[in-house]
């Protein structure tokens, strides 16, 4: 528990919640990042007039993190995974979030608050599988 950061982690969570709330209550849109990203990628569907705000939101996402990094002297990014695992992990994250129709933001933060059965099921599954994967890689294979 030596790395426990309750205050900053709670504040960050509240900021994420307020962001999702603003996007929904003002613009009527769901802050599901895998969905936002996916709809900007080919093959493009016709009649999709929502490209503008999606690009703006993703730009803001990167700038927001950059702003935090610049004002605090850099945010820590420690990645244990080597190159093959990094590529495999990225690929299946891209496949899985597309097939499952969302990730932690869309299903977890927004979907659960909508009381969506699909989102609750997806969130329970990816949290469980993630914990199992961490257990296997850190305690069984290590």
């Amino acid at each position: 528990m030596e790395n426990f950061t309750p205050i900053s982690s709670l504040i960050g969570g509240l900021m994420i919640g307020v962001s999702a709330a603003l996007l929904l209550r003002l613009n009527g849109r769901i802050a599901g990042i895998s969905g936002i990203l996916s709809s900007l990628l080919p093959p493009w569907e016709s009649g999709n007039g929502d490209t503008g705000w999606r690009l703006t939101f993703l730009g803001g996402l990167i700038l927001g993190a950059a702003g935090y990094g610049l004002t605090t002297g850099g945010a820590p990014v420690v990645i244990e995974a080597g190159l093959p695992v990094l590529i495999l992990g990225g690929l299946i994250t891209g496949i899985g979030t597309r097939l499952g129709g969302g990730c932690t933001s869309g299903h977890g933060v927004c979907g659960i608050a909508r009381f969506s059965g699909r989102s609750i099921a997806a969130t329970v599954i990816f949290f469980t599988v993630t914990a199992l994967t961490v257990f296997v890689t850190r305690h069984v294979l290590a």
Binding site: S8, I11, G12, L14, I16, A20, I62
Partner: peptide, 13 residues
């Protein structure tokens, strides 16, 4: 919303 979300992710690590 994007700025707030990105900053929130970074603040919470």
């Amino acid at each position: 919303a994007g700025l707030l979300f990105g900053a929130g992710l970074a603040v919470s690590q």
